[in-house]
Design a protein around this nucleic acid. Structure first.
Lengths: 241, 241
DNA sequence: CGTATCATTGAGCTTAGTCAAAAAGTGTGG
DNA sequence: CCACACTTTTTGACTAAGCTCAATGATACG
């Protein structure tokens, strides 16, 4: 009973384990030296990666796909407190109070998990590893701060705008103006603390105004970054000329 | 030009330096062993403790008083992204993008600052210190997460309610039902992402309903914790009987 | 090809923001 | 100690942004 969720390895076209291990080694990240300790597991869409209890036992690294960390309120409402994209670490220090669980949001989300006790022990003897763990914590801190700044914005238009900019920055695949949103409108809504309808309306609004293009429902192309940053306010001044 | 802001030591009733150093040593915290390295400085209300530039050079520990970390938006609106209370560390890893500055919010806010390069060097050779730094990072992470959960709440009543509960938990001076709010309504508003008037109304509402008592404008006594947790929703059910 | 989920759009209602003014503290100097 | 100016807090009236409910289109998936 090591894993509460039993993940099936999808040996679709390629030999799973070896392929993912290679994927991990080619992606530069702080714990590179500890990759031998990592267990690599692919998850299905919606599958639980870790829940409150297990989070203290491992550090996780998202190799591919996407995941969300959710907190469920007493009223049944869901809040997405963290969005995990390729290259992100998670699972370090979930608040004691928030019983947050992490779920895969894309099909075939691949996660490497490092056993916490082992890396702690290694950090005791290897200051380089200790420093890397610290750097990872800072990285997570910075991600949370970004999220905090987005949530603190007032209008829905601003929130959606800065969300798109954040996605653009974090999914930077060379071509930064074209974003493949990894999550549904529902997820965006719960991530930004607004209703689904409002997210949809904000996107339509931005599209109508020419700030973005919707190549498909999940693919956004940014036309005018400045409009996304500033929300409604200065939009008149910008579109007026 | 070590300090951009020149703080005057207030040798009010007691010898400043020695008094604060004693205060620091009596307050248990992770970097206790490094207190000899710390520079202890008292600040006036509104005084800047550190700005974006300086934040990378030091780790800070708030000994007494209170401070706020603010980000100023392009539209001039202020967001308080972190509230520092006695026992809190800060200054570790401000996001690159948020040019946040930390300001004292109470008169005579005393802060210990540890030079970052020095402690980094020490962490290289002492795994115990390395671990303590990590623990501090997790502590900050947990604080940010709490803030994220509060900001994610929908109604203003819920936000104010959970803010009071957070204050109650963090200012736990034995008597947890009586809270001495360290910040103004304006600050609360910018911390929760609502307007001042809304904060005031929410407090009045909670008072009228009997969930809290306002002993003075800045002193709140919690009567019914459950109402604060749940916001409006179940309030009828609770007060109805 | 049908079904379920996701996305968009509209109409009415509620909440919170804005503007404005009064009330309550706070601190200063006479 | 009081009067004064200043800030903070509260309350009211109006307005607007976003939520809810509801219906329709689009997509994905078996």
């Amino acid at each position: 009973m090591n894993f509460a969720v039993k993940p099936r390895v999808q040996s679709s076209q390629i030999n799973g384990a070896a392929y993912y291990r290679n994927l991990l080694s080619t992606q530069p990240h702080p714990l590179q030296n500890l990759d031998a300790l990592a267990v690599i597991v692919p998850y299905h869409r919606g599958q639980e990666i870790c829940s409150q209890g297990r989070s203290v036992e491992h550090w996780y690294f998202l190799i591919s796909g996407a995941a969300r960390r959710c907190a469920i309120r007493s009223d049944g409402r869901r809040q997405i407190v963290d969005l995990l994209l390729p290259g992100d670490f998670f699972g370090l220090a979930f608040g004691d109070q928030s019983d947050a669980t992490v779920e895969a949001v894309a099909e075939n989300t691949v996660v490497a998990s490092y056993p916490r006790p082992r890396i702690e022990v290694l950090a005791e003897s290897d200051p380089k590893i200790a420093r890397e763990l610290r750097d990872i914590a800072f990285e997570v801190l910075s991600r949370m701060e970004t999220q905090l700044l987005i949530l603190g914005r007032i209008t829905a238009l601003e929130k959606v705008g800065s969300f798109l900019l954040e996605m653009s920055a974090r999914l930077s695949n060379g071509d930064t103006e074209r974003i493949a949103l990894p999550i549904s409108r529902y997820d965006i809504a719960d991530y930004l603390g607004v209703s689904v309808e409002t997210v949809s309306r904000a996107l339509s609004h931005l599209k109508q105004r020419g700030a973005i293009k919707l190549l498909s429902t999940r693919t956004v192309s940014i036309v005018h970054r400045d409009v996304l940053e500033e929300g409604e306010r200065d939009a008149r001044a910008n579109s007026g000329c």
